[in-house]
Nucleic acid binder design. Structure first.
Lengths: 188, 188
DNA sequence: GGAAGGATGCGGCGTTTTGTCGCAGCCCCC
DNA sequence: GGGGGCTGCGACAAAACGCCGCATCCTTCC
């Protein structure tokens, strides 16, 4: 929308084990004029790194079954020091965000993230500007986002997600139906 | 837990505008054999920096009224490049954690944090270990913690906290009464 | 000292949301 | 074909919530 003309990277590495989500994301990014190289696991990503002549950006899913997407950051930056790396995750905790950033990630997003969100996160540098994120999140928003995360972490399984959330399955069902548009946040 | 014999820094800068909390923290850290230099705002902290011969660690409150504790990171690291800096905040969002880390913070904590938590955060390097805390949090627990944070951010003012949370004051009252001890952790 | 503004605790009461049933439809797999 | 698991949904009682009002207490400011 209003992330009008960010500098879309020419080449981007997408590390994501969910094939469906990967292809969606890939297509969305391609539509912005970005050549996306996709890998589904760490080994494939490492192998892919060696074949690429250049890489401007990378989007890494943190949760890759047995692998951890964070482990790609070091070898990636070793080969392409200028590459802008962001980490994507289903859950998303503060501790994990700190870990990712300390390893060299530029930003840290929680799913679901649109192509616009991703490009935005690649573009912006959270460190430099006098940016004051520190916003008072509403209870409902917090709940909704958390539900989405847990749901995602359980592959959309409502029954298990409800159990993990400590609420009844029926309640989760009703809540999910109630909120078709999760008040998608945006700024800038 | 096993934060038994962390390397307690000899000198520490504490930037915290809440005088009461500052003195408590100061005392707790001092009990661990740490010399604490306290500043209540950015200007005082900057002035304090120039007078110190050495500094091993710093604990910065992010929310300092008009000031932002993050703004001390750069000048602090410019003078003491080896100083271990952690940021403390009432709220604590992922975006803020990323911002703090990118500016050079070693870790990012949310209040309330005990002296043990602080020393632990100073000691540990969140980047290196394969540490994946990533636990499945319950909805109620998440809500409760968030409520506590917002409440704390508003100095315990129920009316304003309720407004910030987007719920009715009466509801907040009832909730607070319902949950007297939500696994309150602290010691030291 | 008294008035004014704001915060708190609490009692009701009508409305909304949850918890908990149960049941039917699906899909997968032994 | 018969489990076992997940899903969507109707129904109904129980709990929680929003919202009112009112009686305290505090400050703060005439």
């Amino acid at each position: 929308m209003e992330s009008a003309h960010v500098t879309v990277p020419a080449s981007l590495l997408l590390l994501e084990d969910d094939e469906l989500l990967a292809s969606q994301t890939r297509r969305a990014l391609a539509r912005h004029g970005c050549q996306v190289h996709w890998a589904a696991d760490l080994a494939a990503a490492r192998a892919l790194l060696d074949t690429l002549p250049a890489l401007e950006a990378a989007v890494l899913d943190q949760n890759l079954g047995a692998d951890n997407g964070l482990d790609l950051i070091a070898p990636l930056l070793a080969r392409f020091p200028e590459c802008r790396v962001i980490v994507l995750t289903g859950y998303g905790s503060i501790a994990a965000a700190v870990a990712a950033t300390r390893r060299g990630a530029r930003n840290y997003l929680t799913k679901p993230a649109s192509a616009g969100d991703i490009l935005d996160a690649l573009e912006r540098d959270p460190g430099e500007p006098g940016a004051l994120p520190e916003a008072p999140p509403s209870l409902q928003r917090l709940e909704w986002e958390h539900i989405q995360r847990v749901l995602d972490a359980h592959q959309g399984n409502i029954s298990r997600a409800a159990q993990a959330l400590g609420i009844h399955r029926r309640t989760l069902q009703r809540r999910l139906k109630k909120r078709p548009s999760p008040t998608h946040f945006q700024q800038d």
